[in-house]
């Protein structure tokens, strides 16, 4: 395990932002620390980076204590902040070359700039970049030291579609060459696309963790969309299983999808003269799993 967090608590005055949290990030895997804004993700990542002192708990990153062995860790760790991190008048090329030189690991700055797709913006200053371009510069800086572990805070936030593809490709390539990636995100769909493991946060606590395939594979359901006025008691009677209105005309039958179940529901809708606007009977998404675990609350 590249990152091991045990019984971590972070407090800001009387506010407990992270409450006795434990989790692990496997070596070479992409682990997403997931949860809504204010769930404690960034505080947790900052402790792992060595920027924040925990109230209690033990943290090991590549076997090092991020606070007391920060100097050693900086040679092995890449960090992408949630925003900022570059002086507004600094040029893209200058700042990336400077960071590559500071690490002194002979990372080719020009290749790195090309990798993040900013070759045409090499002479632009930070303040003239779009939000997505700034994110790509930040990612390049995180990779300037050829790190063994990278912490990425909301890496695709504010990034356009092409930029997202670039960032996803880079994250995948990092994982393939054995770099451990830990990223914080509130975007569950995005997280599911890039990560293999997840740590789900809610109100400063970890409510679940593990391989995303395991977290989302626990429960199957049949979900469809129709009008918003269906009587769920009647629907449940027709389906032979409990039925819930999820809102906006989306209904969920709490049973494993099967041709028999789908047949019963669609036949009942036809008999009632109700439309069938969409059907979703695949494995639940990470967002579904999160809602199930939190009882619908975020």
């Amino acid at each position: 395990m590249s990152v091991v967090v045990e019984n971590l608590t972070v407090r800001y005055g009387s506010l407990t932002a992270v409450d006795n949290v434990s989790f692990e990030a496997p070596t070479g895997a992409v682990t997403v620390v997931l949860g809504p804004n204010g769930a404690g993700k960034t505080s947790t990542i900052e402790v792992c980076e060595g920027f924040r002192e925990p109230a209690q708990g033990t943290i090991q990153v590549l076997g090092l204590d991020p606070r007391t062995q920060h100097a050693q860790l900086t040679h092995l760790m890449g960090v992408m902040l949630q925003g900022g991190g570059v002086y507004p008048s600094a040029r893209v090329g200058d700042v990336i070359r400077h960071f590559c030189a500071l690490y002194g690991k002979k990372v080719d700055a020009a290749a790195l700039i090309e990798q993040v797709g900013l070759t045409s913006r090499v002479k632009s200053t930070w303040r003239r970049l779009s939000g997505g371009e700034q994110q790509r510069v930040s990612l390049a800086l995180a990779l300037a030291g050829d790190p063994k572990v990278v912490f990425l805070d909301e890496p695709t936030s504010g990034v356009d579609i092409d930029g997202r593809d670039t960032i996803r490709d880079i994250i995948a390539a990092l994982s393939q060459r054995g770099t451990t990636v830990v990223l914080a995100s509130h975007d569950m769909a995005e997280a599911e696309r890039v990560a293999s493991h997840a740590v789900l946060f809610q109100e400063g606590r970890v409510i679940a963790q593990g391989a995303i395939a395991d977290l989302t594979g626990v429960r199957k359901r049949f979900r469809f969309t129709s009008v918003a006025t269906i009587d769920t008691t009647e629907l449940a009677g027709a389906a032979g299983s409990p039925a819930h209105h999820m809102g906006d005309g989306v209904y969920e039958i709490a049973a494993e999808s099967s041709p028999r179940l789908v047949g019963r529901v669609t036949q009942w809708l036809a008999e009632q003269g109700l439309p069938l606007l969409s059907v979703d009977m695949g494995q639940e998404s990470l967002e579904d799993a999160y809602r199930r675990m939190t009882g619908g609350r975020r």
Binding site: E49, F51, T74, G78, L81, G85, P88, F99, Y103, A144
Partner: peptide, 17 residues
């Protein structure tokens, strides 16, 4: 202002002491 722009924090993650 470098602190408020998070420039210092970003430098703090490099081997620069």
């Amino acid at each position: 202002f470098e602190r408020s722009y998070l420039v210092l924090k970003r430098l703090g993650a490099t081997p620069l002491s």
